[in-house]
């Protein structure tokens, strides 16, 4: 649990737009340890999905990774050639997308999706062998193997999402990035899917980055949580610490806006006032200061530095820093 699998350092993703450059991910650093589930939360548009794509080096133009390092199993992903990177995708880092209805090729059979992935990365495997592996796999995921011959439109959303996970498992990927995997599922299917994920995590010792805006999902599944706001990292720590010894005012606001976690404490359900800032023209200093109930004058002037307050639990906030003259 302490061996780092992926270390992201000062990662910045810039989009060149007509109005000027936009930093969708701005100077973000974090570490993913082998065998853990890291929840990445934030409001929509905070850059968490872009971050997910950046980890695969798949940010589409006009966006690009403008600086930073991503050390994965000791290698900096930024230094790899496009060909090496391609071999890594699917085999070592696998991605599960938000909408299972659209993330499978409508003209390709389910089985062919898995077989194609296996044979892309392991060309020595015969078609028949790959098909058998696919059959075993989806049986484990609770789907009958004869569904392999079906087209995606013949499967339910939950099934498809399980297939997407299955494609990641097919090659024993070291890291699975799941981008809002349950958002488009209905509540019961979501619960089943989360159960499955938990089982798989224990069974396969999965390492996963779970990108979501749903704190509840994080609470259920994640070991640690990273909170993003307007392209920057606000707070990272073990789930229990972040929920109960919350450091950043934004995290506090986010937690307060979720009914199931805090209402039992007798607090009122709050919503954050104001809207997230435009990344095109972000506020100076700490980007949260215009909405922050505890903002100080310095917050509007300078960007707070990252600080580890408790072991493994850090934040970027002026509340915990000495103001320098």
């Amino acid at each position: 649990m302490t061996e780092p699998l992926l270390q992201v350092e000062h990662l910045t993703v810039t989009y060149e737009t007509r109005q000027g450059p936009v930093r969708a991910v701005d100077d973000v650093s974090f570490t993913v340890y082998r065998g853990e589930v890291l929840g990445l939360v934030g409001e929509s548009g905070c850059g968490k999905s872009t971050l997910g794509m950046a980890l695969l080096r798949m940010v589409r133009p006009p966006g690009r990774i403008s600086s930073g390092r991503m050390i994965f199993q000791g290698r900096d992903l930024m230094q790899l050639s496009e060909g090496e990177m391609r071999k890594l995708r699917g085999r070592h880092i696998s991605m599960v997308f938000q909408d299972p209805m659209t993330s499978l090729n409508p003209l390709q059979r389910i089985g062919d999706h898995i077989v194609e992935t296996i044979r892309t990365h392991e060309p020595q495997v015969s078609k028949k062998e790959a098909w058998e592996r696919a059959a075993q796999l989806i049986q484990r995921l609770g789907i009958s193997p004869d569904r392999l011959k079906d087209y995606p439109h013949q499967l339910s959303g939950g099934m498809r999402q399980r297939i997407m996970i299955g494609i990641g498992l097919a090659l024993n990927a070291d890291l699975i990035i799941a981008d809002e995997p349950t958002t488009s599922l209905d509540v019961i299917v979501e619960a089943q899917f989360l159960d499955l994920l938990r089982e798989l995590r224990d069974e396969f010792n999965l390492t996963m980055i779970l990108i979501t805006h749903n704190i509840g999902v994080v609470a259920e599944l994640a070991d640690r949580v990273a909170v993003m706001y307007a392209g920057r990292m606000a707070e990272i720590g073990p789930v229990h610490d972040v929920f109960h010894r919350t450091l950043h005012p934004y995290t506090r606001g986010l937690l307060a806006s979720v009914p199931s976690i805090r209402l039992e404490d007798g607090l009122e359900l709050e919503t954050l006032s104001g809207a997230p800032p435009s990344l095109l023209d972000p506020p100076p200093g700490c980007r949260f200061h215009p909405r922050c109930p505890q903002a100080k004058p310095v917050c509007a002037q300078r960007v707070p530095a990252w600080q580890e307050i408790h072991p493994g639990h850090g934040t970027a906030c002026w509340l915990y820093a000495e103001e320098e003259a």
Binding site: M58, K87, G90, M95, F97, T102, S103, L104, T120
Partner: peptide
Amino acid sequence: MDFVTAARARGIPE
């Protein structure tokens, strides 16, 4: 479309 991105993310050659 997502399935194209998904195929790329699986390492399928461009």
